[in-house]
């Protein structure tokens, strides 16, 4: 379970989990779940195109997810863009299927790109995955305060001199980097789960922003490690475990906050219970 190829799998998946935990925290905070869903789908076409013309998959992933991030940032200028973005997602998936239909390894390739293939990462790919991960985390830590400010109160942040538009673009680019490094490991369709679930669960357990971010990383690591172990032992695909453990932790988080609210509400009939949205 810890030798050769598997060791590479553990290492790559751990890097992905740490980055997903950090970046996911801000995705949930900013409510950009949609972008986190769209970018990996677009990257799928990139990876497929790269395999068609014989380039390294990571190049295709990087090019398409960065282009995707810039497209979403541009579309975001208009108020309602859900139709356009949904259509672009689908077009990218269609393009990916076209590219792959032209290669000889149609179906297995589709499967591993969409649902992940943790054993498909070679030790030579660890270096680019690690470097991209470091860049993503460094960028988030550097932007932490203005990113937090513009997520919580965009108008006030803009008034205080935060370039909120630039923050948005920079953040989407970080999501693009995360996508690039994570697609080969967990797959385009399940990165979403790894980005959202740990962060969403973490914020049910703590009110401290940095604490929630750290907890999100821990939950992401726990998710990925148990997914690999279970996948190794049961011989079932890793994506299945990532998806269901993610849903499980989110459910546990919601359950915990509901329980805590009930406990708090009974002795202290204060302002909290008066707010309709909170009590429900």
């Amino acid at each position: 379970m810890f030798s050769g190829l598997m060791l590479t799998a553990w290492e790559s998946a751990s890097i992905v989990a740490v980055v997903a935990g950090v970046v996911g925290f801000f995705i949930v905070l900013r409510g950009s779940a949609f972008a986190a869903h769209a970018l990996p789908n677009g990257a799928f076409a990139g990876a497929a195109g790269a395999s068609l013309i014989g380039v390294d998959a990571i190049v295709g992933l990087a090019v398409f997810s960065i282009l995707g991030a810039l497209t979403i940032a541009a579309l975001g200028r208009r108020a309602r863009h859900d139709v356009a973005t949904a259509l672009v997602i689908v077009l990218m998936l269609g393009l990916g299927s076209l590219f792959l239909s032209m290669t000889t390894e149609y179906a297995p390739q589709i499967y591993s790109l969409l649902f992940g293939e943790v054993l498909g990462v070679s030790s030579s790919e660890l270096v680019p995955i690690g470097v991209i991960g470091l860049v993503a985390i460094a960028a988030i830590l550097l932007m932490y305060r203005p990113l937090m400010f513009s997520s919580v109160m965009p108008d006030v942040a803009a008034a205080r001199g935060v370039r909120t538009r630039r923050m948005e673009v920079a953040f989407l680019l970080v999501v693009a980097l995360t996508t690039t490094m994570a697609v080969p490991v967990v797959g385009a369709l399940l990165i979403f789960s790894l980005l959202i679930s740990p962060a969403a669960a973490a914020r049910s357990f703590t009110s401290r922003p940095l604490g929630a971010m750290g907890l999100s990383v821990i939950i992401a690591l726990a998710t990925v490690w148990s997914a690999i172990a279970l996948s190794y032992l049961s011989n079932l695909p890793i994506g299945f475990f990532v998806g269901s453990i993610g849903a499980g932790t989110y459910g546990a988080g919601r359950g915990f906050s509901a329980w805590r609210r009930n406990r708090q509400a009974s002795p202290r009939q204060s302002s909290q219970t008066l707010q309709p949205g909170v009590a429900g």
């Binding site: 830590l141 550097l142 305060r145 203005p146 400010f149 109160m153 942040a157 205080r160 935060v162």
Partner: peptide, 10 residues
């Protein structure tokens, strides 16, 4: 955030 929310870094 009111003190230094616009500055970079943690």
């Amino acid at each position: 955030l009111g003190i230094d929310g616009q500055r970079f870094g943690l």
